[in-house]
Every structure is written in structure tokens, then in C-alpha cells.
Computed example of a mutant assay.
Amino acid sequence: MQVRHLLLIAILALTVACSSKEVLDENLSETELYQQAQSDLDNKSYTSAVTKLKALESRYPFGRYAEQAQLELIYAYYKNAEPEAARSAAERFIRLHPQHPNVDYAYYVKGLASFDQDRGLLTRFLPLDMSKRDPGAARDSYNEFAQLTSRYPNSRYSPDAKQRMIYLRNLLAAYEIHVAHYYLTRQAYVAAANRGRYVVENFQETPAVGDGLAVMTEAYQRLTLDDLAATSLETLKLNYPEHPSLVDGEFVPREEEADTRSWLAKATLGLIESETPLPPGETRASQDVVRQYEDAEEQIPDELKPKAEEASKQDRSWFSRITFGLFD
């Protein structure tokens, strides 16, 4: 049923796009053109309204309805599901009329266009998790609403903008936690800890702060940074005692510890271990470098190796050398 709905919407959109080439009478006056555009807006014929408003602005750029037509063009683009065009029209109006009494409306619709950019038709029919999608439009919307509320705190659009900013801030914080958990699965523990700390420091009073502390605790434990892990865990217990990562007061990592065994050891369930487990903080690469150095040292001929006395001289301190050994 959902697929049928999507196909129907696509067909209707294509039909509307193909039938939107409206020819306007060249002899229409400014008032007649504006009235027809208003009639289209009232009838929700936004494509036709866009055509008439653009014609009104181009034919009568200094007319009595020019500025109002620019404002209503922003609205028509937004209602016609053209967010990029709505944002461009809003930016143009702000640039041309920064002191206009209704310029706050341009800021508001600009933020709305970015807010709805990722919330199109697909989100109505598909169960998409917005916190796992690219937050670019959400970040733009938050910044645009922030401009509105800071420049025009008494605007009638500011209360709604502030409520949307709360939602967007929670969404951006949840996205950072999603990325942090991805880093945990990839064993990029430093990056995961940094993401968690970023949420704790920059998204206070959001539900994701507890998740950020849990990520920091898990990442620091994997890195064997016990002091940092203990501090993060104590903060988590103190402020979020009901967090899902705390079971009976004990921290339970979300991601299982990475299995660094070879494929042979995994296939034989550990009966055949091809390599010994790595000590904490070491990697196969660092062990290879040490092994190559030891092999190269063994291959040095005996006559070229320094004698015991020379070796002991090489081990002298810099103070002993500059005083010629007088104070050894």
C-alpha cells in the first residue's frame, strides 16, 4: 500500500510539473496580476502563484506590490515544496530589505524551509530515523531560527522558532551519539570518546548527555584510561542513575569487546591459536617493528659490534662526557 501511495504521488507531481507552463496575458495590469496571484494562493495553486508573482516582480519591479510580492513568493515556494527556492527568495529579500517591518517573516520561512528539507514525502510513509541522517539541513535550520530569535526576540514567530530549536538541538545531539556508537563498533575509541565529550560539553539539557557519558565511559575503559573512565562513570551514576547502561548500579558496555583473534583461531573455536593475544596498548605493527630491529641487530658481525668497555662509555651521561669522566 505504501508503494502504491509513492507511485501515485510521483505521477501526480509529474503531471503537475508538465502542466505548469502557464501563459500570462502581457496586458495584465499590476493590480490584476497581484489579485490573480492572491486568488491562486487562496486556492492552494502554488505553482501558478509562483508564476504570477515572478511575473509581477519582473514587470513592475518598483510598483506598489513589488515588496509584498517578494514576501509572498517566499511563502509560495515553501508551500510548493521547493525548499531551496524558498531559502534563496528569503535570503534575497533579507539582503534587499534588511529594515523591512516584515523581514522577520523571511528569517522564519527560511528556517522552516531548512527544517522541512529532510522531512519530505518519504518520511510520511517510511519509518526513517532522523537522528541517523545527515544533519546538514537541521544544523542550518537551527542557525537560521537562532538568528531570528536573537535579532527579533519580540517577533510573533519567535515562540514557534524556539520550540523547533529545542527539537533540532535534541536531534543534533542524538546524531552525535549515533556517530559515536559507530566509532565504538569500528574500535575507534579515541574518536568515540571525543564525540561523547562533545555532546556533554555542547548539548547540555538534552536527553543525549547521559548517552554521551556512557560512550565516554565505554571508550575510556577500552583504552584502559581508568581514571577518565571512573570519572565519567561517577558523573553518569550521579546525574543519570536510570540510564540503560547501568544495571544494578554497574556499567554494562553497549558494544562487545573486539575479537582480535585470527580467522584460524575463530574457526577452530580457539583450539588452534596462531598468535598470542596482544598486550594492552600494543599492536601487531609495533611488534613487527621491534622484531625487525632485533633481527637486524643479531645480523651485525661480531667485529663490528662495540666492545663491553665502549658500550659502557656510550651509556655515559652527557655530564660525564663534558667533564671527561672526572666526576664519574
Rank of each mutant, 00 (worst) to 15 (best):
Q2F: 06
V3A: 11
H5L: 14
I9H: 13
I11S: 13
L14W: 11
N27M: 10
L33F: 01
L33N: 00
D40H: 01
L41E: 01
S45V: 10
S45T: 10
S45P: 01
T51L: 07
K52M: 00
K54N: 11
R59F: 04
Y60T: 00
G63L: 03
G63N: 02
G63K: 01
Y65Q: 06
Q68E: 10
Q70M: 03
L71D: 01
N80A: 09
A81M: 07
A86Y: 01
R87L: 05
A89P: 00
A90Q: 01
A90G: 02
R92H: 07
R95K: 14
L96S: 08
H100T: 08
Y105W: 08
Y107D: 00
Y108E: 03
V109W: 00
V109A: 04
G111D: 00
A113M: 03
A113C: 04
S114H: 05
F115A: 02
R119L: 09
R119W: 04
L122D: 12
L122C: 08
R124P: 03
L126F: 11
L128Y: 02
D134E: 07
D134W: 04
A137Q: 08
A137N: 08
A138S: 12
D140N: 11
E144T: 13
F145E: 00
F145I: 04
A161I: 03
L168N: 02
N170P: 04
A174V: 04
Y175A: 06
V179G: 08
A180L: 01
H181K: 14
Y182D: 12
L184G: 04
T185S: 14
R186F: 08
A188H: 05
Y189L: 06
E201P: 05
N202F: 03
Q204L: 13
T206A: 10
A208P: 07
V209T: 07
G212C: 05
G212H: 02
E218Q: 10
Q221Y: 03
T231R: 13
E234K: 14
E234R: 13
V247A: 05
V247G: 05
F251M: 05
E256D: 15
S262G: 15
L264S: 13
A267E: 14
L269C: 12
G270F: 07
L271F: 14
L278A: 10
Q287L: 15
V289W: 12
R291W: 09
Q292F: 07
A296H: 07
A296N: 12
E298V: 12
Q299F: 08
I300S: 06
P301V: 12
P301N: 10
K305L: 12
P306Y: 06
A308L: 15
E310C: 13
K313P: 07
T323L: 15
F324R: 09
F324E: 10
